[in-house]
Nucleic acid binder design. Structure first.
Lengths: 227, 227
DNA sequence: TTCATGGTTCGATCTCCATCAAAGCATTGC
DNA sequence: GCAATGCTTTGATGGAGATCGAACCATGAA
């Protein structure tokens, strides 16, 4: 016994519900403040602070102080990969789908992932963007592609306006339900924003579920999937 | 909050030292009895029994009764992948290599990962396959590449024979020691099988370590690294 | 049948840690 | 300077669960 690395130490960090929820929230790649994470974890600020300290001590999180805010983010892609692997097992062999959750199918179709769209629609959209050179993969990163400017102005999103900010314009985010990448970052947020302001879809109360109206779905598909 | 799969449930199962040690022991791919696992976990039989019941309930383990023995094994390759991913994080950010462990260097070089080869050799092999278009990366997935058929028949592995099964032929698995991908899936298992049946290497008893003989190493390199 | 072995269940104990209220720092803005 | 905001620390409380001895059940052997 006691051979490889100390996996119990890491796993037990993820094994607390509050911490797990915080980590899940950070899977977007965006860094969040302690207050936001407290909300995600469903605990008070002091409790969240204690959890965050442990996660940093354990090497799962990094923190960047900025004025009186402190932004917490995943320590790296490896941590995200691990979380994705755990989600895979949890979703697959999990509690026998004891309660599939009333909103489970709707969640798989479309949901909010912090501030951008996730689920089947989001993954399809990402595929389209990559196929049309609107976005291009550059190693680990996603960048605006040659066709991005003309396309996004046509759709009515001003890409120039997004910066400047430390938050990347594009970023990919691993979708737990579809198990492939979807678009996060400022651009992902802008697209979700457009979907909501155009009233193509609305957010279900107290949930991450996004519900499209019939007309809204058509408009969405025309704008983002058929290009 | 409380959106995706219940990762806290799974992670907390792995998060107990006794259970973590048991799971690590099962990474050899062999099924073990409750008594053996109690020893691995460093706990008494009743305690181990309780842990094992939880791991089964959680879907991480399966059990096969055989006479008055009960053999416990990992529930599947997905569980093994998850454990490797956790090991990756633990090895990277871990507690400063408390005790590197006597077999640590050998483990890094070559070891069993459930049913396929892991460690430096395995990562190099994966690199070779990708460089030679024997395998190709397709987004998140790994597929057989244009040169796969001719190559594997030359080496003496019948790729056609692997299917049909729900288990993917190729799959990548994050190597905790090298921190890069190696090959899992049916093909990965077939390759390990060949290495062992050809007696290029043998498994150390009660360990994940794989030891190559001098001749075996040459044969392995000729077959899988030099192509 | 009777004994031995492998495993589980029960019950009691005890330690660890998640939790929150209140107080303490630190940074920004006025 | 002073107040307000964001976050951490302290301290006290409570509960979950890991642990083991002893009793119990099942299978196989004599």
């Amino acid at each position: 016994m006691k051979d490889g690395p100390d996996i119990a130490r890491i796993a037990s960090l993820v094994g607390d519900p509050a911490r797990a929820n915080m980590l899940t929230a950070l899977m977007t790649g965006a860094a969040l403040t302690a207050s936001e994470l407290a909300l995600e974890g469903g605990v008070t600020l002091p409790t969240a602070s204690s959890h965050l300290a442990k996660l940093i001590e354990g090497g799962l999180l990094t923190v960047a102080a900025q004025g009186r805010h402190r932004y917490y983010g995943l320590a790296g892609p490896q941590v995200a990969s691990m979380l994705e692997a755990i989600m895979g097992v949890a979703a697959g062999v999990g509690p026998k789908r004891a309660r599939p959750g009333p909103r489970e199918p709707a969640m798989r179709e479309a949901r909010v992932c912090y501030d951008h769209l996730a689920g089947e629609h989001a993954v399809k959209m990402m595929d389209t963007f990559l196929a049309r050179d609107i976005l291009v993969r550059d190693g680990q990163e996603i960048r605006l592609g040659p066709n991005s400017h003309s396309y996004f102005t046509a759709v009515g999103i001003d890409v120039e306006k997004l910066g400047p900010s430390r938050r990347p314009v594009c970023r990919d985010c691993l979708d737990w339900s579809v198990r492939r990448s979807h678009l996060a970052g400022q651009l992902g947020a802008a697209i979700l924003d457009k979907i909501l302001t155009e009233k193509w879809a609305r957010r279900e109360k107290d949930s991450r579920v996004i519900t499209f109206s019939p007309k809204g779905r058509q408009a969405f598909e025309r704008a983002f999937l058929e290009v």
